[in-house]
Design a binder for these strands. Structure first.
Lengths: 195, 195
DNA sequence: TCGCCTATGGGATCATGGTCCCATATCGCC
DNA sequence: GGCGATATGGGACCATGATCCCATAGGCGA
């Protein structure tokens, strides 16, 4: 949670801790950027207007860093366009202070739940990316042809190598990607490409 | 465009027509629901507060009908939560009246462009769905096994039929789906499943 | 009733892919 | 200089899939 108002920080921290959440409070966007890891699960409660770096500016920075933590804006002086723009930039919610405690806790819970689900999917994709990274350049090249349904002889012609060599690479690709059929290989690559 | 204020309808219609757009104006949500087709390209300019059915209510109805036209809200008395909720429900934008003419035209242009791109993708998927619909139940069943990488003998065992019969179905699936390899078949099915 | 679609299958043949064994050559690194 | 990773390839063999022609049987609508 990032808010320049110490009273707000204190109140929110108590509320969230009473609901069982682990809370880190920051008084400025810079503090958060320097200390927070942005990995793991959780969510970010973010004030809109703060000195030096505003909430939306911090949100931009986080996106640039690849953070996928859901951001819930909390603001005391929000305007329609501020809220709309925040949502368009991928905020999870945009709430006006003073926020209803139950509503806030519900939103936090939804955000963390969503993040947990996304995190589970991403860890699967990371495992796939690790396997993909173990492929040699040639194997990767052969794989790209295989998942397009090209025959060994066609691949061999395109790469100016023998059909036998294609078979060797192909077999290694299947082993390194831990699949036993072309169909499963295509599924994996589609999952990686869609993400 | 749906707005209960005749002056707004007139002004917006003139502005949009001067920019080359084809405009249909409706005074009430019900009129739009009855007359509009909601297919093709374009976008919807929607007032928030109207008698009988509000803008968000109409938006809900449109989603229920499967409309994918981008919705741009226009409102004279918007609140933060109205705007945020509209965006969370999939609105393309939420603009306060009086809107800057250039900004409005830019948003309309963006929305229509986005819709055109989405429409092109959907027409491809529709073509695939048509092919899929031509499969007999048995062929569909066999295809589901094939795209999981199962061998003909395994499929035959699961379905309690001969390997030869599986080959026949399989060949017909490939022909009807217009693909020449298992890899391409999996690509198509993944594209359909992801959409 | 006749014709069409669907599902089922036999038999033969060919192309393709997968998997063993083996070998050579290059490159970078300790 | 040797060692491991990578790329290349031969030969043999088997499993699998694709493609012909052929046949039977049930259901369903004109």
């Amino acid at each position: 949670m990032i808010d320049d108002d110490a009273d707000v920080r204190g109140g929110l921290t108590r509320l969230l801790r009473s609901a069982g959440w682990i809370v880190d409070a920051y008084a400025a966007a810079q503090d958060f950027l320097e200390k927070a890891t942005c990995d793991g699960v959780g969510c970010i409660l973010l004030d809109v207007s703060m000195p030096r770096m505003s909430g939306p500016e911090l949100h931009d920075q986080l996106r640039a860093r690849g953070s996928r933590l859901p951001v819930i804006y909390l603001t005391g002086h929000g305007t329609v366009s501020l809220g709309v723009n925040a949502m368009r930039h991928g905020a999870f919610d945009f709430i006006e202070k003073p926020a209803d405690a139950d509503a806030l806790l519900r939103v936090v819970n939804d955000a963390v739940t969503k993040r947990e689900q996304a995190s589970a999917q991403e860890s699967e994709l990371d495992e796939l990316r690790r396997r993909l990274a173990r492929l040699s350049p040639r194997e990767h090249e052969v794989m790209n042809h295989v998942i397009q349904g090209r025959l060994n002889k066609q691949i061999a012609a395109d790469l100016n190598i023998g059909v036998k060599t294609v078979k060797v690479h192909r077999g290694r690709v299947m082993a390194k990607m831990k699949v036993r059929s072309v169909a499963q290989l295509v599924h994996l690559c589609d999952a990686l490409g869609a993400a």
